[in-house]
Design a binder for these strands. Sequence first.
DNA 1: TTTTTTCTACTGGTCTGACCACTCTAAAAA
DNA 2: TTTTTAGAGTGGTCAGACCAGTAGAAAAAA
Lengths: 196, 196
Amino acid sequence: MNALINNKPRTKAYQNVLEKIKDYIQIDQLKPGDRLPSEREMAEDLKLSRSTVREGLRAIELLGLIETRRGEGTFLRPYQSYQTLSLLAGFIFQDAKTKENVDETLVMIENLIVDLGRCRGLSKIQHKWSGHGYSYWCRRGYKATFEVILDVMDNQLLEKIWYLLYAFYLSIEDKQHIRTVKDLFKLFDVEIKAEQ
Amino acid sequence: MNALINNKPRTKAYQNVLEKIKDYIQIDQLKPGDRLPSEREMAEDLKLSRSTVREGLRAIELLGLIETRRGEGTFLRPYQSYQTLSLLAGFIFQDAKTKENVDETLVMIENLIVDLGRCRGLSKIQHKWSGHGYSYWCRRGYKATFEVILDVMDNQLLEKIWYLLYAFYLSIEDKQHIRTVKDLFKLFDVEIKAEQ
DNA sequence: TTTTTTCTACTGGTCTGACCACTCTAAAAA
DNA sequence: TTTTTAGAGTGGTCAGACCAGTAGAAAAAA
C-alpha cells in the first residue's frame, strides 16, 4: 500500500511518456508539424517497452496534441481538430448534459464575446460582414460568421471556450444553433439585404 | 490511400474501445464508481487484443473518465480530479498562454457566475457565508468560498468551465487569484468582521 | 542522361503470450 | 470463531512477431 503510505498514487509508466514528450518539445524547440522521435526510439530512451510507450502516445493523441501516421511517424499536431474538441467536450461536460444548461451557457459566453468584439472592433466586424453581404454569410453559416467576431475580439482563451462549448452543443443537439446569422447582423447593426 | 479516396481518416482499432465504453455506460446505466468490464472481457467482446484495448483505456483514463486499479478493475471516475482538469486545460488552452487573456477571461466568467448566483440565490449565499463568518472562509480559501456560488448557480456547464479555467490559471500563475475572499464578500454585501 | 522500377529501411498498427503485482473471497487450518 | 492460505480474478509491463504503410536510395530501363 505504498500509495496509501505516501498518500500519492504510484505513477504509471505510460505517464512518463507524457513527461518525456514535453521534454522533447521544450529541448528540441519542436513546433506544430514537427516529427517526434519514433516509438522505438522513445522506448529506448525511456527504457520502456514499445507497447507502454504506445499507451502514452494514444492518450495524448486522443487529446489532440499529436497525430501518428503509419509509415511516417508521430507529429505534433498543427491544430486541434474539430473532432478532438468535440470528443474532449463530451468527456469534460459529460455529466452536465441538460439542454437548458447548454443553451443558457452558450448564449452567455456568446454575449461576452459579442460585447468584447463590439468594444474592440465594431467597425471592423461591420465592414467584414457588409463587404460580402448577408446572403454570402448565410451560405457560409453561423460558425463562420461568428468567427469574424472571434478574430477581432483578441482573446484566445474565450475563443477556445466557445469552440469547446459549440462543439459540445452540436454533438447533443440535432438542430441548428438557437441563434442565426440574422441575429448576429442585428446585434451589430449590419444591413440585412438580399443579394444583388 | 483509402483515407484520401474517402476523404476520411481510417479508424484506429483503439478508437472502437471508446465507442464501446460509451455503449457500456449507456446500456448498463453505469454510474460514477461503477466497474466496467475487465480488459480481457472487453478484448473478447470487441475481438481485439488486450493491448489494443489498453490503448483505448489509457486514452480516456488520461481524460479522467475512468480510473484503473491493479487487482481491482476499471471504474467510472466519481469525479474529475483536479489533476485531470489541469492537464486537460493545459492541452486545450495550450497555444493561448497569455497571462492577460487568462486574467481577463477568468474574471469575465466569474462575473457571469456571480451574476447568475445573485439572481438565483443571493440570500442563500449570504446566509452560508455569514453562518461561519469571514475568517472561516478566509481559511477555507478562495476556491471553497467561490464554490458556494457555484452550488447555488445551478449551471453545471458554467461550473465545469470555471474549474477548467481556474485549474489552467493556477497552473501558469505562481500567485494567488487576483480576486480574494474579501472581494467576494463585498460583491454579495456580506459582512466582513473579525472572528469572535 | 533521364525516368521508372525495385528494394531497403524506416515508420506505425495490431497481436500473442508471458509474467508480475495487486485485490478479493472462499476454503482450510488453527 | 478467528486467522491464514490458496486460488481466481484484476491491472501493469514486457518481448517479440508480423503486417501495412511511406520515403528515399539504388538499380534498371528507356
